[in-house]
Design a protein around this nucleic acid. Structure first.
Length: 316
DNA sequence: AGCGAGCCCTGCGCGC
DNA sequence: TGCGCGCAGGGCTCGC
């Protein structure tokens, strides 16, 4: 579910509440939400309770809360990924349990007093884990929200996102042009560029008038640069609106929805008019998901169209 | 290198 | 009303 803007809203909401807070208790209600913490729930709880959290950091769709350094342990962080339906909520200690509550983390903050970080997740594709921090490959800060050049081990292979000051535009363009794949597939590849999911890929492609199956190798450099600018633009605008909420699945740390769904031009708008040309937006199957596009504004590349015709003729 | 398939899951809305 | 189906903001692993 949540893509970069939604995860950033959550990070920004957590930051003031968790920075400097002591972990007073951990309650694991659903062990499957720790599937990426291989040592299990008991280990997770034992190593987290009594530790102090140092902030909230994000790279792409990954979020982590660094644990304050201890003299007898290598640096670690509480790593979270929301998957398709995960939420991190800030609650008062006595509050009613949230729907699909999986893990509760009790905190004592020097200024804000007692509070609870509740991890709720309908589909259990998301997870929390304690992960060792390792140095970043480029020496720059690990992500947004913290100056240390450290990143959780399980995030080390994830590319920087387009809102990261250390994102290298030229390197991204070079790497994308070197791929032999379809354009949307490349945008969704978190090892090439992170933070983009199905919604913002469709929105950026619509804005740049590019077809999702355009072969990456066929593109010209300025076209890729323009696409990157559109990616940044849509991520930034969505963030300013508090993210995209279609239902109660995505909410900020206080349980409130974002408003960017009202500004979507292509995603989820099949059958409705393209805001640019008025012709209907269509939905097509793609990677066991969907792509939404305006077939007029976003023409299928000719070489690909011919190949398709060839295939269908051959099939007859 | 890249891709498709399979897997990890729950719950909602729809048509019958 | 009940049931089956398709659908959903993600990502990891494996075999080809």
């Amino acid at each position: 579910m949540p893509e970069l803007p939604e995860v950033e809203v959550v990070r920004a909401g957590l930051e003031p509440a968790v920075s400097g807070a002591l972990v007073t208790g951990v309650e694991v209600l659903e062990p499957r939400s720790l599937r990426r913490h291989l040592a299990g729930a008991e280990d997770f709880e034992r190593r987290l309770v009594g530790r102090r959290l140092a902030g909230a950091v994000r790279r792409g769709k990954f979020l982590w809360l660094p644990v304050e350094a201890s003299p007898d342990e290598a640096p670690i962080a509480l790593l979270g990924h929301l998957g398709m339906s995960g939420q991190l909520l800030l609650r008062a200690p006595g509050a009613e349990p949230d729907r699909q509550l999986r893990i509760r983390i009790g905190l004592e903050h020097p200024e804000h007093g007692e509070l609870v970080v509740a991890f709720a997740d309908q589909r259990i594709f998301g997870s929390l884990a304690l992960d060792p921090l390792v140095p970043t490959a480029d020496g720059a800060a690990g992500g947004l929200g913290w100056s240390a050049s450290l990143v959780p081990e399980h995030v080390a292979h994830i590319a920087r996102d387009p809102l990261d000051p250390a994102f290298d535009d030229d390197a991204f363009v070079d790497r994308l042009l070197a791929r032999r794949t379809g354009l949307k597939r490349a945008l969704l590849d978190q090892t090439l560029v992170s933070g983009i999911g199905n919604i913002y890929a469709d929105e950026a492609l619509w804005a740049a008038r590019l077809h999702y199956e355009a072969p990456t190798a066929s593109l010209r450099r300025p076209v890729v640069r323009r696409l990157l600018a559109e990616v940044r633009s849509v991520l930034t605008r969505a963030l300013a609106d508090g993210g995209t909420s279609f239902d109660a699945q995505y909410v900020n740390v206080n349980g409130a929805s974002g408003y960017f769904s009202q500004r979507l031009n292509a995603y989820g708008r099949q059958g409705r008019p393209c805001p640019r040309c008025g012709r209907p937006i269509v939905r097509e199957a793609f990677m066991n998901r969907s792509s939404h596009l305006c077939p007029f504004c976003q023409r299928r590349p000719r070489a690909l169209a011919q190949a398709r015709e060839g295939t269908s003729l051959a099939a007859k």
